[in-house]
Design a protein around this nucleic acid. Structure first.
Lengths: 209, 209
DNA sequence: ATACTAACTGAACGACCGGTCGATAATAAA
DNA sequence: TTTATTATCGACCGGTCGTTCAGTTAGTAT
């Protein structure tokens, strides 16, 4: 059994004693915003649309977040913290190159599923603002770390050497990241089963064994 | 040698004798618009931005296209015509199931590269308007046809049967479609080389052979 | 020259955008 | 009951959006 990739850092543990008038908290607002961003795209989602989804006035949203872009930043942070967390796990640092690579790929699948909306948003970012560019930078750094694992696995002879490691990594993540386009957690396939399928396809391809 | 997937239908052959004041034609306008749509996203791209990129007034754009959304429709058509064209080729209909599947996957890679901006745009469509929904419908139909090929190849024993064909197809296209995120045609890798790499990864995975 | 045609322009339109403001409503603590 | 704290509201701001319209410009054909 491996540790949970599903949460990090922002864990308070204390439910916090509430004062003043009750209402939405930042997380509830963010969840609604992110699902709207995914449905209509970030730019096409207006504050008016968010306010009607929340059952709140536009102005009230600004009590929770100082700007629309700050909601995006918070969402992207949740996705990136999850992915970067995988690289910090022991399984990503100890063992053979092959085992470390498999651990990270499997961990990435689990983060994708556990934080599906946030990662979905992350994968659609194109870098038009400073916030988006910073997210892209962290994502590229994550990619670079995985490419290094592919290089290690190739040098130790467990991964094919006839394709550039950078291309291999991109194709691998092309496959893994596509999960956000079609996987729905309420289906019959569990996250573990999904990770098994992805790993099987990534390692051995679609040829009959 | 296989036929060219790069063009279809809209071939006039006749360069058309021009009358009146010379200027942009629809295709030139579309190319500029599509590259802007890709850079900033369709919604975030304003007609004002297009006009300054073209060196034209906003109003002049409406001489070539009756609406911003019609530019999107034209671009998505180019992408979908290319993909659907692959399924109409002889190689997609004759031969063993394995050969037909390989032909279509290779063909899809070639279309992706030949019509890179248009397919890039297609893959970002989320279905917020009727135009986008129609494009998604055609894309799903293409996916369904390929899934049928995967089923055939599985039944004939050349493709693994321990993963659902629908999941296999989605992972395959996750890999192939990711090409638009990183492949740049001016690099050292040709489209044929790229198709070889993708087919090798898809069929045999990343394990050393 | 003259007519014809396609390509283009500047100014304006109503609608909607993200964001601000000062006032107010609903709770817990005193 | 009062006070402090948090959450919310309606009205409004300057700016930008896609689109329209009535003219103008630059070519080809006669």
């Amino acid at each position: 059994m491996m540790a949970d990739w599903a949460m990090m850092a922002e864990t308070d543990a204390a439910p916090a004693p509430k004062k003043g008038r009750p209402g939405f908290d930042r997380q509830a607002v963010l969840d609604v915003a992110v699902s709207a961003f995914i449905e209509h795209g970030y730019d096409a989602t207006s504050m008016g649309m968010l306010s009607s989804r929340l059952g709140l006035s536009k102005a009230a949203i600004y009590h929770h977040y100082p700007a629309k872009a700050e909601m995006l930043r918070a969402a992207l942070d949740e996705a990136l913290n999850g992915l970067e967390g995988v690289l910090l796990e022991q399984g990503a640092r100890d063992g053979t190159a092959e085992k470390r690579l498999a651990f990270v790929l499997r961990g990435a699948v689990h983060v994708l599923v556990a934080r599906l909306p946030y990662v979905t948003l992350l994968l659609r970012v194109r870098g038009n603002t400073d916030i988006e560019r910073e997210a892209l930078r962290r994502r590229r750094e994550f990619d670079r770390a995985v490419t290094a694992l592919v290089v290690d696995a190739r040098d130790s002879g467990t991964v094919r050497s006839d394709i550039e490691p950078a291309v291999v990594t991109r194709l691998l993540f092309g496959m893994i990241n596509s999960i956000v386009e079609w996987y729905r957690p309420d289906g019959t396939e569990s996250a573990d089963q999904l990770a098994d399928d992805v790993l099987a396809m990534a390692l051995n391809g679609l040829s009959a064994s």
